[in-house]
Design a protein around this nucleic acid. Structure first.
Lengths: 143, 143
DNA sequence: TGAATTTTGGTACTAAAGTATGAATCGATT
DNA sequence: AATCGATTCATACTTTAGTACCAAAATTCA
């Protein structure tokens, strides 16, 4: 639902509630079996609840736009055809490790790392490891 | 003010408001000069406003703790003895540019850029440009 | 003005990064 | 069993990055 539609609905709800309450109050004042205090009390509680709901609603949207969502986008990883090992290498690149250090960390040769990196660059459409890190974060492939 | 105290104050405020409104309504019903509808209308608006205020208050604290502050730390730049030109180069490194590209961007030779970068690495205590970017962000030298 | 710092650039070198190509191995799928 | 993708590794090569050392302008500042 669009934000505008939500706002319209909310205000419509307020007006509707107010009208019903007024009518209800007017009517009940001439019916002795129902206490006027009781009706007013119900009206007060309903209005208060409505107010709290509206107040929450107003802030909820602001929180959503402020909150930085940084979760890994698994779908994009799949669509790019990036393998688990390549992802692991990209992660280590983003931590500032050299090819040799990555190789040692993963118990493989530097040649292997170079292969992974070359394949990564094609999939990420970049030319350098610094750009790969930027892309990886842009596309939420790495945190 | 502590969160607990705030909550207590808020609920106290609600109860107080409700009591006053009830008394006012009861009293006004026997005074012909004041319309019952008018009093009820005022009561409704006050309660709605109170509800909205309460609803906002509930969420406000969460917003504050989410807000991320990321301003450049000028003092640290000075204390590290990083020159304006070096900072500029670091900025461009963080954007994924090569030495040659940085040189062209700043209308100087690649030798000059290499000199700046070597000096930067010493000041940032790093060995690679990828690490330099990480340090630069850690220390709030670059955005 | 004189001194200190910044900026610039060169040469020469070493190290690291990245490309291209081919190939062996392994696990899962068909 | 044959195929496919992922992983592994090697060789050979080109390019970029980074170091060391030096030195001339340009700027800033006392």
């Amino acid at each position: 639902m669009s934000p505008l539609l939500k706002t319209v609905l909310r205000f419509g709800l307020i007006i509707l509630a107010l009208l019903i309450l007024f009518q209800l109050t007017n009517a009940s004042l001439f019916i002795p079996s129902i206490s006027a205090d009781f009706v007013i009390g119900i009206a007060a509680i309903v209005l208060l609840a409505l107010g709290i709901y509206l107040g929450k609603g107003i802030k909820k949207e602001k929180i959503v736009e402020v909150k930085p969502i940084s979760i890994i986008d698994e779908k994009r990883i799949l669509s790019l055809g990036i393998s688990p090992r390549e992802l692991e290498v990209l992660q280590l690149i983003s931590e500032g490790l050299s090819n040799q250090e990555i190789a040692e960390r993963l118990f493989v040769s530097e040649s292997t790392i170079k292969t992974h990196i070359s394949n990564l660059f094609v999939k990420l459409d970049v030319k350098r490891r610094t750009q790969a890190v930027i892309r990886g974060k842009e596309w939420r492939i790495i945190p």
